[in-house]
Amino acid sequence: MHAEAATRQRKAKRLASVALLLIAFLFSIWYIRFDWIAFVTGIPIFIRFLATDFFPPNLSSVSDYAKPVLDTLAFGIVATCFSALIGSAVGLMMARPTTPSGKVRVALRGIVSFLRNVPFLLWASLLVVLFGVGSLPGILALILFGSGFLARVYAESIEEIDPDTLEALDACGATYWQRLKHGVFPQFMPGFITWTLFMFELTIRASAVLGLVGAGGIGSKIKQTMDLFQYGKTATVITILIVMILAVELVTQKIRERLI
């Protein structure tokens, strides 16, 4: 009897959530005046656009793209190094076992959460306004975003390390630096390497969109060719981008396997 009531309650709950979802769905369609006909006809238009305007890729000026590719890779490396440096300093101050004081920890968490939760492209376009067009705002945006991201994941992996080691070191009377050197760093290293490599992958992806707001990298070629309606060239750039991302992923994967 009791079980039956519970089942009925669960069924009612499920029905209620489905109804809620349906209402939200209908409201959304009404709110943005979602046009089903435009949507259903839009998808074939989109696909035909991709199929006819982008193929075949225009390979006439492939050599022009060498510089943006190099730029993008250099962006990634420089930004990753800076972010790793800043991220580890902030991460150490943010992680529970290594923070100098609780207040610092809370304050940094707030700042890092703000950095991360405001979208990356917004930071980039803000920095373009501040520093002018060029590679500098792009790099700074990557560093800003990367430091926030790395600080968070570094802090998380520091918090995961075995507390017994730290306790033993404390019991021996180790200073803060000795504690870091012998207790934290050895265990933190694998996490550090994994996340730093991942950050490098992210920067390659991100520099693809940086160009859209005028911050250099291979994205600027995408925007440039699309603004001129040279979609064949856009297809070439996007293909290069895909190859680049896959290659970087492969390389970092290999390094990770070797090191960890």
């Binding site: 492209l121 693809a208 995408i222």
Partner: peptide
């Protein structure tokens, strides 16, 4: 998945015009 989302949206905007659709 390799192509960043922003690029996809850029392509959609190019083919369908501006707007939520």
């Amino acid at each position: 998945r390799t192509i960043p989302t922003t690029i996809w949206v850029l392509l959609a905007v190019a083919s369908m015009g501006f707007g939520p659709m």
